[in-house]
Design a protein around this nucleic acid. Structure first.
Lengths: 350, 350
DNA sequence: CTTGGCACTCTATAATTGCGAGTGCTAAAT
DNA sequence: ATTTAGCACTCGCAATTATAGAGTGCCAAG
């Protein structure tokens, strides 16, 4: 147990100073000088002493001086150390949690829940909130319904799982009567209810090849329609982002060019989606500080994410995007809790 | 027929110069000087002569000098004259129209059509596109369906008109079997299909008061559920706005404070909605230049709107929002055509 | 009525200055 | 050995001043 790495490890004091520095910088947004730090800490140290420590911290890459006579600013590495070991997260007030819980009324459609969660994230954090669309899996068919429209078209209604309802207009070869459609629906319901959508699809294809000629007209009708109703499910890569506008309030982003690039990335969606996809694996809250995300557009931003899950199955990821200089101790529990609440709300299927 | 108002009316030449000035300013974005105008017009006039005309135009309030030694910039009044009588709108190429038409595939759900239209407006104009949600009226009930969920909850599916499908989870007093729900649905369908939603609502209320004690259990169940399924339809005041980001590209809006205010107004929605509501009455394309809209946030913007309608019934309004300095001759036909195409696409109900 | 000439005004850009904040270093103090 | 006070130094920021250029208004001549 000999204590090697006596230089590599930060002294208690240095850590404390770094913590205060980061907190101060997060609050004020301006480089923190030695005098300020000396006032802020309880340790009665003169600015000169603190300058020495700062020099060390700078050497180790935790802080950085924008120019000779400015105070110090945390580097990404500094923020990283801060969130990893210096941070004390304040858990949310139970009343706050209750209020959030109330908003996410479990009867709402998944889509609404997603939007609400995104709104909550953005509203509480005063930054941008993101929620990826939930992965759709185990989509058991519950019911199929057909309604005749004019011009050889049919309105198909699919009920899946508990409350997912989809509908689409399909074109058919000839006009069908309501009764015929009823029959076709009955047939499909009898055959496929409870089965997974993907399974249904495959069985249908098989059935078409096997027995086309042996089918009666009713079955033919059913198959013709079902073919269009159960298209290959492309995983809907998408997310709901709320509160971009909040980002305009932050000084470090308040020039139009940076904003434009950032907002365009939000619209593009691609980069953000791949970033969020990485977080699906993570157990809990994950934080990307500045360049860590790997996307240039997010260089001045941090992203705090957490996966949300139902019954242990991770369905998606949500998070908050804001300037690197964000109140991590506040954002982290917010993201964490929202993920849990959203999971719970989505779960209420019984 | 004596020609009074010899001073009030603009000379042919003044009009021409104003037109060129506005066009030039719209393109370049910078105050237009007399030398530039002298080069741009075919009339071989020296800058000095043009200065005289400009002095007149300024006196009459059509142009304005930002400061002593800058060129002239159109005032709102100048723009107004321009769009009212100096403008020559270039109708869209027929191929462009065809491409747009193709996008608005009539089988899509109304919601999708709205979003597509908004996307188109924003995409072609490179500004922000807005489409208000269509007024919902004549919402004839086509079918009601109930599916049992756990915990005394029922999934209700409502089909209205041609392809509008709504669904919501409702709470009921006790658990119902699938068969019971079927019966209830059958009852409601038999009684109310084809009727207007509002009518249905009222009849239900009446029925409840009249005959509560005389109802059999099936009817009671039906009524209990229908009560929740047909809530008072609050007119969904909302719109789909796409391409805010485009507005960041314009110099006159490229300071963060103006953008923030503008974007906040977009989020608030209230002001824009009341503005768009005014346009419902207008026959065709309507233009609000700068302050004309009456909303301070839009002082530096112009809004070009057109109502869209199905079978002569105006359902909503769409338009483009951009800087006052926008290419009106291009935007006007775009808005006009999109309104027509959207109306047509929504109309395709067989 | 049009035009060239000319003085004038005003802005935008760059260069200059002074101020204040904060540092690094050194030497003294603990 | 650590801490501290002192001090010269650096650098950015804001205010000031200088400069160039664009465009005007007006007048007198064409």
């Amino acid at each position: 147990m000999s204590d090697i790495t006596p230089k590599k490890v930060l002294s208690e004091r240095a850590q404390h100073l770094l913590r205060v520095l980061v907190q101060c910088y997060i609050q004020e947004g301006q480089p923190v000088g030695s005098r300020m730090l000396s006032k802020l800490t309880e340790l009665d140290l003169s600015p000169a002493t603190i300058r020495n420590v700062m020099a060390d911290l700078e050497e180790m890459g935790f802080v950085h001086s924008p120019h000779t006579s400015a105070g110090r600013v945390p580097t990404v590495q500094g923020y990283r150390l801060f969130v990893d070991s210096l941070l004390t997260v304040a858990p949310l007030q139970s009343e706050e949690v209750a209020a959030l819980k109330l908003q996410l009324a479990p009867d709402l459609a998944p889509q609404n829940l997603i939007e609400l969660a995104s709104n909550m994230l953005s509203g509480i954090s005063r930054m941008a909130g993101v929620v990826t669309m939930p992965r759709r899996e185990h989509r058991a068919l519950r019911q199929v319904e057909f309604l005749p429209l004019s011009d050889n078209r049919v309105l198909a209604i699919l009920v899946m799982n508990e409350r997912e309802v989809q509908n689409r207009v399909i074109h058919v070869g000839r006009a069908y009567s309501t009764a015929e459609l009823q029959q076709a629906a009955n047939y499909l319901n009898a055959e496929f209810v409870g089965k997974d959508i993907e399974t249904v699809r495959q069985k249908l294809l098989q059935e078409m090849q096997d027995t086309r000629e042996r089918m009666n007209s009713m079955m033919q009708a059913a198959i013709e329609m079902a073919e269009q109703v159960f298209p290959l499910e492309t995983d809907n890569d998408d997310y709901v982002l709320v509160g971009q506008n909040n980002l305009m309030d932050f000084a470090e982003l308040s020039n139009v060019d940076k904003l434009r690039v950032l907002f365009q990335a939000f619209n593009q969606k691609r980069d953000l989606l791949t970033l969020f996809d990485q977080c699906v694996r993570a157990e809990g809250v994950q934080i990307f500080i500045g360049e860590e995300s790997g996307y240039k557009v997010l260089d001045e931003c941090s992203v705090v994410t957490a996966p949300y899950s139902v019954n242990g199955k991770i369905l998606g990821v949500l998070g908050v995007i804001g300037p690197t200089r964000m109140a991590y101790e506040r954002v982290i529990p917010i993201v964490d809790m929202t993920a849990k609440l959203l999971g719970a709300a989505l779960n209420q299927r019984g």
